[in-house]
Write a protein that binds this DNA or RNA. Sequence first.
RNA 1: GGAGGGGUGCCGGAGUGGUCGAACGGGGCUGCCUGCUAAGCAGUUGCACUGGCUAAAACCGGUGCCGCGGGUUCGAAUCCCGCCCCCUCCGCCA
Length: 427
Amino acid sequence: MLELAYVREHLERVKKSFHDRGLGGAGLDEFMARDQERRDAITQVETLKAERNRASGEIGRLKKEGQDASALMAQMKETSARIKQLDKRAAELDQEMKDFLLTVPNLPHQSVPVGRSAADNAEVRRWGEPPKFDFEPKAHWDLGPALGILDFERASKIAGARFVLYSGLGARLERALANFMLDLHTRKHGYTEVLPPFIVNSTSLVGTAQLPKFAADLFKLEGTDYWLIPTAEVPVTNMFRDETLDADQLPLKLVAWTPCFRSEAGSYGKETRGIVRQHQFQKVELVKFVRPEQSYEELESLTREAETVLQQLGLPYRVVALSTGDLGFAAAKTYDLEVWLPGENGYKEISSCSNFEGFQARRAGIRYRLPGKKKSDYVHTLNGSGLAIGRTWMALVENYQQADGTVVVPEVLRPYLDGIERLERNR
RNA sequence: GGAGGGGUGCCGGAGUGGUCGAACGGGGCUGCCUGCUAAGCAGUUGCACUGGCUAAAACCGGUGCCGCGGGUUCGAAUCCCGCCCCCUCCGCCA
């Protein structure tokens, strides 16, 4: 969320942000008109309240002295009625403005390439060479079922479309990947592991900005205020909602392995094959709370930390900086990691690393205080996948496939799979 | 799910209709003191919105905030209603 005062004073910058993101600037001018109306109403009602407060004190004094206060009381009864009316109007305007502010996207950082869509994203760097095969490489949706480690039919019987069942070595590979990633981030990158609730309330979702705009992307539990998390970002960022952290706790780095649930409403017909786009998947998520002046170096290191997973697994990838047209609602800047997929002969997003600056912190009330300083300030929040496990599974199977349909297990993963060197049928 | 208790400032903890933004204690900050530290003394101590001043602050004023939302009243931390959360006991359960 942008601060009201900021929008008021930097209207042109906000309008430019809307434009760069490919949104109409509509609403902003009306918003400013509302702002003026609201401030006028507040001035008026506060004057009346001040008058009432004075009179109430006077009434108390008169009564104490045994004097008659009924005239003043009658007068204040009218004033109170008037206040009630004006208060209601001011509250309405206030609510309208808050609702609007919650739908205003974050301002893109100056370094973000201006563009209309993903086509305008800027490639930052590449790592690794796509493997060369002397046979026609298969997609994971052929390899997996053939190895008996992936079962789409039964998943769809149990739940429906866009679910998958991992079986045998497939399930163990998923778990091995999660453990490998968690170990890497906790042992080498200084993250603290947390295991949060997988269900959150709507306040938490407003805090990280999935609500109010993106309810359609989420699963809600009927008859409750509970929602399945679309990413660990939500519970982990909200750990410190309405809290003030000590500056010496920062940067605070947390890693969580959770399932993620996404309704993918409106995406039917898109990426229906394989495990690319599922209603449920697992992800190891990195979350940082940092001091504002450090957030951009922290974004770089966060991205590098996510990249380390791919490097250690030997999976070729590239890093792209999202353009303004592709940038998420809450993000000021985002790097996507895209892994090489032989089955698609192209790169596919496997991690998204973002700096939200104070956008989430303001919504969620996450502050920090410097020792000895009175005034607190909002932290900057960042997060990134480190990595999406389902997509890593998929990339690994495709990149390490052999002519005979088996899959070689990368060295670093073998300790997590009882030393197994190869995924074969009937294991 | 049932019964009971409770939610007050950074923390502990008073406060049952007016003089309460809130006693008292602790902590923090500032100054004094001190070779340094501790102790001691004095002062100070939240957030949001809003008006004035301003380049912007500082600053000065106003309003609101004692879990959240309503209500009663001239006036509510204090009374009434609804909701949320926490604790204890019982039941159930991995």
